[in-house]
Simulated scan of single mutants.
Amino acid sequence: MSDSTPRSGLAPPSPREDVRDLLGMRAPRSLPVVGAYLLSMIVVAVSQIHVVTDPVLLFGGLLVFIAAALGVVLIDGDPLPHGTTLLLTAAGPLGCALVLAGTPAIPSASLLFTWIHGAGTVVYCFLNVRGRLIAPWVGLAAMVVVAAVWAHLRNLSPMTAGLLVGVDAAPIIMSLLFALTLRPAARRVFALRRRTLDHVASASAEVAATEERGRQAHRLNALARPMLQRIAVGGDLTDDERRSCAMLEAHLRDQIRAPLLAQLGLDVSAYHARTRGVDVLLIDDTRTGRDRSDSEDLSPPVLSVLQQTATDALDHALDGDVVVRVSAPDRPIAASVLVRSSAGTTRSEIASDGDVTDHR
């Protein structure tokens, strides 16, 4: 079926937004209602078992209606998927055909005749609510045809049988009007909820950014203020003070240029390595084309291996230089640690699955 929901200029709901949420159809309290409806169908079917000529056909039709009732309530999708809609549309005439095939043309069969097309109509009413507005009319027309054919084969009036089923157009029309009112309202509610969530997320991000800026300012103040005060006093700096300025500048540069590595604590290890005369370079290529680094580009195992490998290299380096690099996303090598010293050169490559390969 290619039915469509009414349009109101708003985007369709996401897979998690379903009109059933507004009706409470997915809430636990709906289960007793569904259970009572299914039980009523079973009671009517059992009460009519003495009327039919083949109980197997009766209970076959009953199972079709039960499955359709459960499907229209439980299956996800708003509107319902096309395949599901096709099956639910076919459930009405199929269930009616099964039950009527074993129903004789006697007055005592009137309750049975009324119940079966009523069960199909209930499914069609909910099809309207679930966003399929053409399928119910196709299903109702098919049930009218089934009833007329049954009446003709039983030497009854096909028109009378068709009209008895055709009166179910009234509840289908009411459910259609309800759906035309409910579904646009539901889309507006979901759109407002999305905007509210977006606003809350944006506000939370702003608060987090403000707090982060405050922490960074406090840390910068603690690190740089003493040296800035010394420079402000005037006078020539000693060699040790110049070295301290250079290491402080490199330390702050690490936090700006490679925040992901700083989050792993490598900026501290790099600072201590520089005090021993080691040249250290931290590079974070995941920042390419971004405003910030995102640790989600690397899996937790890779982050753990990178942290351990780089920390060991920095803590044991006594001379030479150490380069720790995080590769750009979608590269086969997630990160690398290069150590060049008087003892030789070692390059450790960390794959995207966390495996480490050493090249000497």
Score class of each variant (00 low, 15 high):
residue 4 S to P: 02
residue 8 S to R: 02
residue 13 P to N: 05
residue 14 S to L: 10
residue 14 S to K: 15
residue 14 S to V: 02
residue 22 L to K: 06
residue 26 R to Q: 06
residue 40 S to H: 05
residue 46 V to C: 13
residue 56 V to P: 09
residue 62 L to K: 09
residue 65 F to R: 00
residue 66 I to P: 03
residue 77 G to W: 06
residue 77 G to A: 01
residue 95 G to S: 12
residue 105 A to T: 05
residue 107 P to Y: 09
residue 113 F to E: 02
residue 117 H to W: 01
residue 117 H to I: 01
residue 131 G to T: 04
residue 133 L to D: 00
residue 149 V to P: 00
residue 166 G to V: 01
residue 167 V to N: 15
residue 173 I to W: 11
residue 180 L to Q: 14
residue 181 T to E: 04
residue 184 P to H: 05
residue 185 A to Q: 15
residue 188 R to L: 09
residue 189 V to D: 11
residue 193 R to V: 00
residue 195 R to Y: 02
residue 195 R to M: 01
residue 204 S to Y: 04
residue 205 A to W: 03
residue 213 R to D: 01
residue 214 G to V: 00
residue 215 R to G: 00
residue 218 H to R: 12
residue 218 H to N: 01
residue 221 N to S: 14
residue 222 A to E: 08
residue 223 L to Q: 07
residue 226 P to S: 09
residue 227 M to D: 10
residue 232 A to Q: 03
residue 233 V to P: 11
residue 241 E to N: 07
residue 242 R to G: 04
residue 270 A to E: 07
residue 278 V to I: 07
residue 289 G to N: 12
residue 290 R to K: 11
residue 291 D to H: 15
residue 294 D to S: 09
residue 296 E to A: 11
residue 309 T to V: 14
residue 311 T to M: 11
residue 313 A to Q: 08
residue 315 D to P: 10
residue 319 D to I: 02
residue 321 D to L: 10
residue 322 V to P: 15
residue 329 P to D: 06
residue 330 D to K: 15
residue 334 A to W: 03
residue 337 V to P: 08
residue 339 V to W: 05
residue 343 A to S: 13
residue 346 T to I: 04
residue 346 T to A: 10
residue 347 R to E: 14
residue 347 R to Y: 14
residue 348 S to Y: 10
residue 358 D to I: 03
